[in-house]
């Protein structure tokens, strides 16, 4: 079985960390990941930029693009995509195509990725 693990924390706090503290936290997280990578049990790992960089697309007859993260609690997280694009406009376009194709409600939040490691092909999917 593949599991996704989502990280939540108070951004106002993590953004107040000094460079040194940030590096410290990342290093101790990396120590947990290393053996998992060696065992081919860790897929892509991404660290997102702060929510200040996010835009959200509300699905609907005409998809609405709004600044800021997805903030509703009525809907649940169902999945995610990672796309490689030159500009935010390109990402918005892809999300709008997805919105049309899905033909249902909800929203997409677009958030630039700060660091990304694809790691390895997982044993379960090889």
């Amino acid at each position: 079985m593949l599991y996704a693990i989502f990280c939540y924390d108070a951004e106002a706090v993590t953004c107040s960390w000094s460079k040194e503290r940030d590096a410290e936290v990342m290093a101790s997280l990396a120590a947990v990941q290393r053996p998992l990578v060696e065992q081919r049990r860790l897929g892509p790992v991404a660290r997102l930029m702060p929510t200040t960089t996010a835009v959200t697309i509300r699905k609907g007859k005409e998809a609405m693009v709004m600044d800021g993260p997805f903030a509703e609690t009525k809907e649940q997280l169902l999945g995610f995509y990672v796309v490689d694009v030159a500009t935010l406009d390109d990402a918005v376009e892809i999300a709008q195509d997805l919105a049309k194709a899905s033909g249902s409600g909800g929203a997409y939040e677009l958030r630039p990725i700060m660091t990304y490691r694809s790691n390895t092909t997982l044993a379960a999917t090889a």
């Binding site: 835009v55 918005v92 630039p112």
Partner: peptide, 13 residues
């Protein structure tokens, strides 16, 4: 730099 560029990209929209 990456975060700054992302914010600028967003602003220009």
């Amino acid at each position: 730099i990456a975060e700054g560029l992302a914010l600028l990209d967003k602003a220009m929209r």
